[in-house]
Design a protein around this nucleic acid. Structure first.
Lengths: 113, 113
DNA sequence: TTGACGGGTAGGGAAAACCCTACCTATCGT
DNA sequence: ACGATAGGTAGGGTTTTCCCTACCCGTCAA
């Protein structure tokens, strides 16, 4: 199994918010960081960011490691791989978009699950 | 330009709903369809589905063509290509996950935009 | 032309999302 | 032991989402 509906839903819902996507970008570009370092990049109070981190955690997109009184957050990209898999069956609809081939395919229903 | 922030936001927001993802799947598997054919697959009144179609339209994920009194909805996958591009910089975080290489990369911040 | 059919819009209610200010717990330094 | 620091949780307000019923307009068939 690739993704249960509920997991898939949590991941897409987590990605629906710009702040949370920005958190993922920061973790990707700068590596694991404590909460305060992340919070410094947003015009938002720390508790609000804390809840965004909770959403990301519950979607499996970040993990936390305790180090003293700090919580180091780290990117967990596995759920994004599932998003990519979700995208796969759509790929041919934006590739082969030349010479009307795309429109042709659109008009011939396929039969994958 | 690949995606303005607002467009990106609309696409991710559109994908955050399971009904809307299901609509995309139906259009992909069965080709363009009128509203009623789509509505038959959901336990929801047609006006509600109509609003989901509006969200998808405003995200550029579907287009409508009028044919008599029917509106034929069609998948428009281009915005999904932008989602795939958004995913690209994360790929190395779920590939090369062998022998601790992933953890190493996580700890060495990179410097792409 | 008069229904009937396809489908969008209006208005409203319940729930969820998102932000805030307090507050609480745990760890560190002195 | 005590204050300061890191960060999560509680409670609340505002906005958005998602569903509903009612209603409207355009097209087709009799």
């Amino acid at each position: 199994m690739v993704t249960t509906g509920a997991d898939e839903d949590r991941v897409f819902a987590a990605l629906a918010n710009g702040t949370r996507r920005e958190v993922l970008r920061l973790l990707r570009e700068r590596g694991p960081q404590p909460v305060q370092a992340l919070a410094d990049h947003f015009a938002m109070r720390r508790p609000s960011l804390s809840e965004h981190l909770k959403v990301l955690r519950e979607a499996g997109l970040v993990s936390e490691t305790r180090s003293g009184r700090q919580r180091i957050y780290q990117l967990e990209a596995a759920p994004l791989a599932e998003v990519q898999e979700w995208l796969h069956p759509y790929e041919r609809f934006w590739r082969d978009r030349l010479k009307g081939l795309g429109e042709l395919l659109d008009r011939i229903p396929d039969d994958e699950t």
